[in-house]
């Protein structure tokens, strides 16, 4: 096993090169979407904002091993913060994204502090309870959040003072794509840093890590804050692009969908999150428009199939195939 992984490392391109390659692929895919579907840019922008949410979930689930069904609370916090700031006169888009990320990070801090108290099932239930609580709170505090009508009427200032957020959504889409690339690059650096490795170690063998003299709580909490900032960025992007923030941005449904997308793509790879989001949302766009209940049946069947036949998700299975093709053995020594 060790020998194989050494050989793997020797023949594999250098990590930095791989990262640049991955970034280039994402950028290429994004631009292809821009050129191929010029009429669906609003949908594609929404896809990018959800991709940020799923990326943030991957940090928690894939790198820390904490199952969460409440990730949308971080996304919603970012969306509402950006929306409220925009309605109160802060219209610079970059500033709005920063506000959203900060709100997400603070919510992540609180959520992590609560969730890390429990393990296993109670932890999962806590994540659900938190997102439901925030949902009810957002519904109740209608003077701030617009209640069930949501926030609307935000008019962000033009990007760099030149490109307006118009009906076609070109500038919104390219803005979102740029954000996604920056966030993806930063996350690649974070998960490979000693801190990222430590999180992974805590997921694989918490007992051993604590025997090394490391206290898990602050490490995991830090990851929750980062995850919150990423999800908040996604929420803020959605608020800027659609100029509407609704109660569905802090919902259990969105959280559950995000988890499905992540698992579909494969956890613990970052790029799995992107693959899963694109496939899930594209399918949803087509099938759910025809019949929402067929869509539910399909998602259910896909989930069952993944658990039974491809527990590592599409990206893990792709890795396996690539490994077979290049005769390096299926398992990459994770």
């Amino acid at each position: 096993m060790a020998e194989a992984s050494i050989r793997n490392a020797a023949t594999r391109p250098a990590p930095l090169l791989r990262d640049l390659l991955a970034l280039a692929l994402v950028a290429l895919g994004g631009l292809a979407g821009y050129l191929l579907f010029p009429d669906n840019l609003a949908f594609l922008t929404r896809l990018i904002s959800v991709a940020l949410l799923v990326l943030s979930l991957d940090l928690v689930v894939g790198y820390c091993g904490i199952a969460s069904l409440g990730q949308a609370s971080l996304y919603g916090a970012g969306a509402y913060a950006a929306g409220i700031a925009c309605l109160n006169g802060v219209t610079e888009p970059f500033l709005l994204v920063l506000i959203g990320a900060a709100a997400g990070a603070v919510t992540g801090l609180l959520m992590g502090a609560v969730m890390l108290r429990a393990h296993g099932l109670p932890q999962l239930v806590l994540s659900i309870a938190i997102v439901q609580l925030l949902h009810e709170a957002a519904n109740k505090a209608s003077w701030l959040t617009g209640g069930s009508d949501g926030l609307s009427g935000m008019i962000p200032a033009p990007l760099f003072g030149v490109f307006e957020f118009d009906l076609w959504g070109r500038s919104a889409y390219l803005f979102g794509l740029g954000l996604l690339l920056v966030v993806f690059a930063i996350l690649r650096l974070i998960v490979r840093s000693p801190f990222g490795m430590l999180c992974r170690g805590l997921k694989e063998d918490p007992l051993r890590i604590s025997a090394l003299g490391i206290y898990a709580f602050p490490v995991l909490l830090k990851m929750f804050v980062i995850s919150g900032a990423v999800a908040g960025t996604g929420g803020a992007l959605a608020a800027i692009a659609t100029q509407v923030v609704g109660l569905d941005s802090v919902s259990f449904e969105l959280s559950a969908n995000a988890l499905v997308m992540l698992v579909l793509g494969g956890i613990g790879h970052l790029y799995g999150a992107l693959i899963g989001t694109v496939i899930f949302m594209a399918l949803e766009h087509v099938v759910a428009a025809a019949n929402p209940f067929h869509w539910m049946t399909l998602v259910g069947a896909v989930l069952i199939a993944i658990v039974l036949f491809a527990p590592r998700g599409l990206s893990g299975t792709l890795d396996q195939f690539a490994g077979l093709l290049t005769r390096q053995g299926g398992r990459t020594g994770r």
Binding site: L124, V260, V263, M296, I304, V307
Partner: peptide, 20 residues
Amino acid sequence: RSELSQVLMTIGITFCVIGI
């Protein structure tokens, strides 16, 4: 299997039951 697998599989069953 892990808790995550169990959650996913049973959510999948729930979705199928609702749709059907």
